[in-house]
Design a protein around this nucleic acid. Structure first.
Lengths: 212, 212
DNA sequence: CGAGTCAGTGAACACTCGTACTCCGAACGG
DNA sequence: CCGTTCGGAGTACGAGTGTTCACTGACTCG
């Protein structure tokens, strides 16, 4: 339903495109994008190397597509979690839980992001940085609408949003390293860290100098 | 002076070994370790591919050596900075300044660390993680000896040390992305973030629940 | 001095890689 | 219905890869 105006042709095209993306993601579990071969991907996807060019110009372009696939659908989700009612403590726990659940559900996607955030492929780095900046802005916006944010400058809100987002990223990669059995401990420490930040937030206006 | 018991032979060996490390580091500026070719390195170092095996088993082993070279000499430095007298604000500014100076002095080394921290080469990831864990422990130890740390559990000190270390890493990679001209702004934001953490630290015992 | 060690050489191995061709045949649009 | 479009197959090429092997010659040490 909804709008699927595509014919059989475009459907098949999208199908193989997705096969390429999936195959690449599976291969990227144990290596990084810069060492991923075009042929390697097509072999795993069950297509000929030449077919790759019908969908992506580079493996770099494929990487950018993977970034969109992973992070593109996450926007708004954080804002939604932060917008729910409850005190700081509750919202904090919920946020961490949401992250842990997402990472547990699609580990390969987040491993890819963590790996390529500082990886060797420029366009992919840029795509990830752009998405994370958007996240930071969204978080800052959500924080700005809380009552506790009165008196905060826009710059400090962005700083705080970036802080939260960076910690989100760190937490995901720590979760991936820890594996399922270490998840509980990682979540526990992550919550403590965020709690400390929250406490600092509550006293920010009392003690932070106006300017430097 | 000191102890250089090595003959001409071992000296030359160490010289080419260093040439390999330097060449690799230069090449790693624009790519990641997993895509770094053995031949590529030897070519840049002015040696034949076979000579590589006299020094390293893998490119992975070379990566581990690079980790040691970059982070091995940094231990104690942080503790020294933190041990200096002055209030939190001063120590905080000094720490950030030290980081900025080191990153500015040897950007390639830190770019390598940031890139391979979550990169595709397992042994290198492990080596970096081990070094960072040591840093976190050292920071925790230094913090524990301050008067303000009275009443803190060892676990919370480690949590805080890890928080500082992770932020150190984030700051370095942000500095690298920003380049020399953006350094001042990055340092400014980094200081603010640390200040927020410090404020949270000051009120931690008042508001943090005992256990979860 | 002379035997032994060993860092580095050079050639050859069997691959994999990205890319440029031509060609096929099913889906498309007038 | 028929000509066109186009996703994908197949083949081939040159370049680059990691690794092995026998070898050389300068340094080391008894």
């Amino acid at each position: 339903m909804s709008h699927t105006p595509a014919g059989i042709r475009q459907t098949q095209k999208l199908r193989t495109r997705q096969a390429l993306l999936d195959a690449a993601l599976a291969l990227l579990e144990h290596q990084s994008l810069s060492s991923l071969g075009l042929r390697e991907v097509t072999r795993a996807a069950g297509v000929t190397p030449t077919a790759f060019y019908r969908h992506f110009e580079d493996t770099a372009a494929l990487g950018v597509a993977l970034v969109e696939e992973t992070l593109g659908s996450l926007h708004g989700l954080i804002a939604a979690v932060l917008a729910e009612t409850g005190d700081s403590e509750e919202r904090l726990d919920r946020s961490v839980a949401v992250i842990a659940r997402h990472v547990g559900a699609q580990p390969a996607h987040f491993r890819f992001i963590a790996r390529e955030q500082h990886g060797g492929v420029g366009p992919v780095r840029a795509a990830i940085a752009a998405q994370l900046r958007r996240f930071a802005e969204e978080v800052a916006c959500a924080l700005g609408q809380e009552p506790g944010a009165a008196g905060w400058s826009e710059e400090d809100l962005l700083m705080l949003g970036g802080l939260y987002v960076d910690h989100m990223v760190i937490t995901t990669s720590t979760l991936l390293e820890a594996g399922p059995e270490g998840e509980a401990e990682v979540v526990r420490v992550a919550r403590r860290r965020l709690r400390l930040v929250t406490i600092g937030r509550a006293h920010w206006l009392d003690e932070a100098p106006a300017r430097d």
